[in-house]
Design a binder for these strands. Structure first.
Length: 111
RNA sequence: UGAGAUGGCCAGACAAUCGCGCUUAUAGCAUGUCUAUUUGUGAGGAAAGUCCGGGCUCCAAUGGGCAGAGUGCCAGGUAACGCCUGGGAGGUGAAAGCCUACGGCUAGUGCAACAGAGAGUAUACCGCCUGAUUAUUUUCGAAUGUUAGGUAAGGGUGAAAGGGUGCGGUAAGAGCGCACCGCGUAACUGGCAACAGUUGCGGCAAGGUAAACCCCACUCGGAGCAAGACCAAAUAGAAGAGUAGUUUGUUUCGGCAAACAGAUGCGGCCCGUAUCGCUCUUGGGUAGGUCGCUUGAGGCAAGUAGCGAUGCUUGUCCCAGAUGAAUGAUUGUCCUCGACAGAACCCGGCUUAUCGGCCAUCUCAUUUU
């Protein structure tokens, strides 16, 4: 489920498709592992308190878990944007729902 | 009942389902950083700031001094502290209480704007008092002026005017004298001490500032878990060992000698030109991994010594250990509708943030008995 390797991350950053909005950016790229994988890159600059960073990670992981079966074999990396500070938890849930839909649509078309 | 003070405790609760980290056991084969089931467990009172102290690790060490930094009423506690406890002094509050960087400016050096006559060897602007008098007025006492002195009681300036209050005293005044207070000093008494009390003496000398330099006493080796220990790909380089492609000649059939080649790049090709033996092993070491990593100055209970901080004894319990970094989601019920906030080697403190709730002790006011 998780991505651990720095090489995987750099691969995603190099040739990913981007979806962004509501304080988040989502990068996706095809992989060869046989299941979708999730990676997180939460900037300390954007969320200064550790508890808020943990909160965000949990929301993203949970949301990803619920939609896992929808994805094909892709690596997903979620990035924060500076305006993440203002967003409420409920808002982020909705935003993620939308983002997943667009991501799924993208990969169905191309594959 | 209301208003307050101090200390301690809790940090939404319960149930179901789906997930995550570590872990126990079993099974599977694809023997793995695997999968499935299963056992147990899973953030804080501040985990935070990183401001002190200690353990632990490595480096340096024979001891001492200088420099530098820190601490600063006394005693005790502690592994240690800048922490805590008890006591003293000063300040503050009606009280319970709370606050204090609280050693030394009678060792030295320095500093103080403006105002003011004078600011640390004090000072005479106004005023007060005395003498003189060539002036003016006169109710003939004197008053005003001028001049020579005395004076720190009063006014004024200032953050501060060189002890305070009162009485005596005096021309007017003045520690000039006396009493009380304050200050200094000596002795005695109480106390481990800080300090307090009593008595005598001094007669104002000694203003403030040491988070000014400085003096005195005491403390401190440096760096930090990215400490440090171990395992260990690929590539390049190092050391060692082995092995030389083809043809010809020779041969004691092990070899030896000569010539020609080979691979890669530049180039359309030749020529030319540049670079390079190959294989194995070894050690250092990078990526990566393992350990350090949680049994500890540990928690809880009882007893015991102490006013207390805390110590001692016995019993009992095992209570996060991640590393792109684990605690969440959904549903239901209830309530006071849930703040600040997330472990990263581990402890002891301090400081800062914080919705609310509970308990104990104490103070004051009011009412009732």
């Amino acid at each position: 489920m998780k991505m651990n390797n720095p090489r995987d991350y750099s691969r995603v950053f190099r040739k990913a498709k981007r979806v962004s909005g509501k304080g988040l950016t989502i990068l996706t790229v095809e992989n060869s592992v046989g299941h979708p994988r999730l990676g997180l890159a939460i900037a300390k600059k954007h969320l200064k308190l550790a508890s808020r960073r943990n909160r965000l990670k949990r929301i993203i992981r949970e949301s990803f878990r619920q939609h896992q079966s929808d994805f094909t074999n892709i690596d997903i990396v979620v990035l924060t944007r500076p305006d993440i500070t203002k967003r409420e938890s409920a808002e982020l849930w909705k935003a993620l729902e939308q983002h997943w839909l667009t991501v799924v649509a993208q990969w169905q078309k191309s594959s």
